[in-house]
Structures are given as structure tokens and as C-alpha cells.
Computed example of a mutant assay.
Amino acid sequence: MSHEVEDETTINESYSVTVPAAIRQEAGVEAGDKIRWHVDDDGDLSVKLVKQQYGAFSRLEPVDIGDSTDAAEDHDLVAGDY
């Protein structure tokens, strides 16, 4: 971050909050990102931005195991249930 930004928001009746625009812009918050909440032993609350990761498996190469598979049909099979 280039500089400190501070803002506040109100928790509504459904316990939802809105991340203020200045905070979103400075932190680079995008749709799909997550916010990790943490309360320490002293009761202090901290918030950490967890960026959405795209293409996490894009570098993996397929492996030929010699058997044909159908992921749509086989996805619930447990080893040994064939």
C-alpha cells in the first residue's frame, strides 16, 4: 500500500458489513476475494484480505494412468468402491 487509509462502516441488522470504497481501492479488493477475521486473546479484532487465486491448477499436466475415467460419473467413488 502506498499510504495508510482508515475508514469505518456500520454493522447492519443481518451482521453484514460493507468494505468502504477507499479501503477497497487502496487494498485492491476485488469480487471473489475473502476477508479473514481474527480475534486474539485480548479481544482485539484484525482483518486480513485473502485474494482469490485464479489458475491454481493451470500449470498441472494431465497424467495417463492407463484407465479411462469419467470425472462427472466417478467423482463420488471412494477407492475400492469400483
Rank of each mutant, 00 (worst) to 15 (best):
D42N: 14
D44Q: 12
L60Q: 12
P62W: 02
A56N: 08
A31V: 14
E4Y: 09
S16G: 06
Q53G: 04
G55K: 05
E6V: 11
M1H: 13
W37H: 11
Q53Y: 02
D44I: 09
E8L: 09
A72G: 06
G28C: 06
D40E: 03
I65A: 12
L49N: 03
P62M: 02
E13Y: 02
A72P: 07
K34A: 15
D33M: 11
K51S: 07
Q25G: 14
D7I: 08
I35S: 12
M1C: 01
E61C: 04
T69M: 07
S46G: 10
T18N: 09
V29G: 03
S16M: 13
A22V: 14
A56V: 10
G32M: 09
D74R: 08
D67C: 09
K48P: 00
V5E: 08
D41K: 15
M1Y: 02
V19A: 12
V47T: 05
P20T: 07
S68R: 11
D33P: 04
D76T: 05
M1G: 15
S2W: 00
T10C: 04
D67P: 01
E8F: 14
I23N: 10
S46Q: 03
V39M: 10
E73Y: 13
S68D: 13
N12W: 03
S2V: 15
E61P: 01
A31Y: 08
D41A: 15
L45I: 13
E26W: 00
E13I: 00
T18H: 01
D74E: 08
P20H: 01
Y82H: 07
I35V: 15
A56T: 07
V17H: 00
F57Y: 12
E8H: 11
S16P: 01
V63N: 00
E30K: 15
K51G: 00
D44F: 14
Y15C: 02
A72L: 14
V78W: 07
N12I: 03
V29A: 08
V5F: 06
G32A: 05
T18Q: 11
S16F: 10
D7Y: 01
L60H: 08
V47R: 04
D7G: 04
G28S: 10
V17G: 01
T10E: 02
L60P: 11
E30S: 12
I35C: 14
D67L: 11
E6W: 02
I65V: 10
D70H: 06
T69L: 15
E6Q: 10
E73H: 05
G28V: 03
